[in-house]
Amino acid sequence: MTGSFAAGGPPDTGAPPDRPGAGDGGYSAADEAMARAAAAGWSPDAIQIEHRSTWQDVWQRFRRDKFAVVGAVLILLLIAMAVFAPWIAPHDPTMQYEDGITMQGQPVGPSAKFLLGTDPLGRDLLSRIIYGARVSLVIGVLANGFALVLGVVFGLAAGYFRGGIETFLMRATDVMMAFPIYLLAIALVSVLKPSIWILILVIGIVYWTPMTRVIHGEVLSIREKEFVDAARLTGCSNARVLFRHILPHLVAVVIVYTSLGIATTILFESTLSYIGLGVQPPTPSWGQMISEGQSYYLSAPHLVIYPGLAIMITVLAFNLVGDGLRDAFDPQQRRR
């Protein structure tokens, strides 16, 4: 997502980022154009207001937020790490090295061969963390995508059609939210056989509710706007009103909540893997690694610390980007 921003980003328009009064890029550009036009002798045709889309404005504000940019860079690095894991990782993550365990059967600490040490089975910790990024990102993105699809469909239906559909969907959301979600997920996973796909399905089912609520609320406010009346008056069908007129106004809120949701989902996957209901060995997952290493936390604390750090950094990065996007999409509520 951040990648697409970087790719689609406009060239720098030349305004220094923290120039006072440049709060809204659109206006300052217009003012400059006016000033130029005035200098050149005023004529309406002389005004060339710089064409700048919402996305360009959002990008301008996003790149000024240092924390968000750091988060975006971290996410890019994580993605690169997951994609290029076989080339980056120094060892096979499932290979049990004989020199990876001491004579007493203890994991060895950091060394030249094993940069972060080994786990109790003699596997290279660094390689396992690098491969673990794959699981976290795949589940984070896909489970969230699933929750997102459910949330958007239910939210749109409830908010646009109102009536019985709305009552049913929103009360169902309330019931879902009142459920202890960990208990629900554990129950579902223990009935179905745990695998990455089941995990994605379960997390999606558990997490559709917040998105549904947010979309529902947004749709309620958008459907009352006059342009929606205008669309209906021009003869648009319900489907056209929904997808052409309402959905594009939800893009901002969907992007923000997705990036925040990915962080929650990754954490949730770690928790499930930690209690043994998530990704099954030997596939490395950060939560599962903490779980396996916790009985050695006195003799080999690196087994818990490094996967823990990996989870923390990933979640933090998505949260930073989510916060940054929220501020970038909403110029009125900006804190600075």
Binding site: K225, F227, D229, A230, L233
Partner: peptide
């Protein structure tokens, strides 16, 4: 709907941005 149309009060809210 082809036969009848409306001109709205708020020109900011009546055009899809």
């Amino acid at each position: 709907r082809r036969r009848m149309q409306m001109i709205f009060q708020d020109p900011y809210a009546s055009l899809n941005s």
